[in-house]
Nucleic acid binder design. Structure first.
Lengths: 188, 188
DNA sequence: GTCTATAGACGGATAGAC
DNA sequence: GTCTATCCGTCTATAGAC
């Protein structure tokens, strides 16, 4: 019941995303050409253009989700009553969100300038920096002193540290616990 | 006693470095062309090639110092007796070193993938990541548990947070105090 | 859905005059 | 020390056959 010839390869789109994410994080977005991605997949550049309209479009295909989750978290946080409990819940959700998209997050951190140029040019999204600053603002309240801003930013950076240290194999729950503990240590 | 005509412009090399550092950090290394740098300075591309052998050479002209300082810190740290006092001294020197080269540091963070490609290709330096990991190793000791690695990495990231939050105007001493306080909170 | 072929633009780098 | 002019490579993206 099996036909001869090459398989239909209906999952090419996802394979492109996987390879692109890997190469972009490793070598950088600009330095990675579509030719290189195509070669690694055993297809041609033109094939990529069947699945994606442009190189930027590949990036958006895996950053859209991640950005939407962060925006949802920010919106949710805005409508919560201030207090220690809320603050810890925000931190916990932030850690979970970032860890869940660790691959995408790694890519963004390795290519901050490039990603900001993409998103900034089209005004399609708030910048990565704006999102982080928005969360810091919500966690500290307005007119907080410099020390609070830095400590809260460092609290969020703790998840970056966890991703930086962890290999692909690490236990998500353990990383969550470690990152959250640090964050709470810093924002009190 | 003043002559007519254009000034000799003997400081072009430094002006190139300033503009390049600014544009690289803002738009990204790859996206910034030599044409753009030259235009902003009111000279031509060819003029840049009198002062620098290549685009990469411009980068090295301001990362060499910064990397050398970090390597010196690592070497010094290797020869210190272990203990709380040494650990805090390492952290303090790290914060000072990074804050002193904040502009360069910002550039590196905005272009991690691009910078690693440059340095990795020539094996001229240890990678940025290697340097950070080396310091973490010295601060935690060998075979430390995951939690210690993450906390120590987060301690070093605190300086990144300080730079991220601070504008160009911020008080260096205040930032130093804040970043060091966080680092000590995390490594105990 | 994938291919070949190519357009069209732009980048880094060099040669040589002034 | 800066200029004009140009070479050559690579890249993104498209047209059109299969």
């Amino acid at each position: 019941m099996q036909h001869t010839g090459a398989a239909p390869r209906t999952d090419t789109r996802k394979r492109v995303q996987q390879v692109a994410l890997e190469l972009f994080a490793e070598q950088g977005y600009e330095k990675t050409s579509l030719r290189e991605i195509a070669e690694r997949l055993g297809v041609t550049k033109a094939a990529l253009y069947y699945h994606f309209r442009s190189k930027e479009d590949i990036v958006h295909s895996f950053t859209d989700d991640h950005n939407a989750r962060l925006d949802a978290l920010i919106d949710w946080a805005k409508n919560q009553p201030p207090g220690t409990g809320t603050r810890r819940e925000i931190l916990s959700r932030y850690v979970s969100t970032v860890l869940a998209g660790a691959d995408v997050f790694r890519f963004i951190e390795q290519n901050r300038a490039a990603v900001q140029s993409l998103e900034g040019g089209k005004e399609r999204f708030k910048l990565f920096r704006s999102r982080l600053d928005a969360l810091v603002e919500l966690l500290t309240g307005p007119d907080a002193p410099l020390r609070d801003h830095v400590r809260t930013t460092a609290a969020l950076f703790a998840t970056s540290a966890a991703i930086h240290v962890a290999g692909a194999n690490a236990d998500q729950d353990e990383l969550h616990a470690i990152a959250l503990e640090i964050a709470i240590d810093l924002v009190g």
